[in-house]
């Protein structure tokens, strides 16, 4: 990471911070705002990723899908979900310059959840983000791919991580 400019690290950390704060507040429009118009989001198990199986838990491969993810969470499934509070803990592990203001960034993450009315706290999932960030008029995700070691989810997952 030594050749990466401090302001690049700062921008990527800031983008990640906006992202996890949006999710922990369940502000899905702020979540969407972290993505570039060419951005994609994937949530996939490490088992599938390692074995080359393409099935994901969430596969938003274009911006319209990201918009529909917001609709799914805030409108379509709002009343049937047993809602839960998340806390995302992240750790930047590497940044690589891909050229053209693009950077490959990796974070480790763990997400805790506290289910409303149950109130005990458990681990929702643990994994890594494999990101491609564009730094141009601010930073945005061209790709945020969450690969989770937690191959068996402890409950259904109502929101992205």
């Amino acid at each position: 990471m030594s050749e990466i400019e401090p302001n690049v690290i700062f921008s990527i950390e800031n983008l990640n911070r906006d992202y996890i704060c949006a999710l922990d507040k369940l502000d899905m429009n702020k979540w969407l705002a972290c993505f570039n118009k060419q951005g994609t989001y994937t949530l996939i198990s490490n088992e599938n990723e390692t074995n080359g199986f393409p099935i994901a838990f969430m596969l938003d491969d274009k911006y319209e899908r990201l918009q529909d993810r917001v609709t799914q969470v805030t409108v379509i499934q709002e009343d049937s979900t047993e809602h839960y509070q998340t806390r995302h803990m992240t750790q930047l592990t590497s940044i690589e310059n891909l050229g053209n203001n693009r950077y490959q960034a990796n974070f480790n993450f763990s997400v805790f959840y506290t289910q409303n009315l149950v109130e005990t706290t458990e681990i929702l999932c643990v994994g890594r983000y494999e990101d491609i960030v564009l730094i141009e008029n601010g930073a945005s995700f061209l790709q945020r791919k969450a690969v989770i070691d937690t191959n068996v989810l402890p409950r259904y997952m109502a929101y992205p991580v």
Binding site: S45, E47, N48, F53, P54, I55, V152, L153, P154, R155
Partner: peptide, 11 residues
């Protein structure tokens, strides 16, 4: 052709 799993625990 197999394409992958989604695994989950239900309470």
């Amino acid at each position: 052709k197999f394409a992958g799993y989604q695994k989950v625990h239900y309470d």
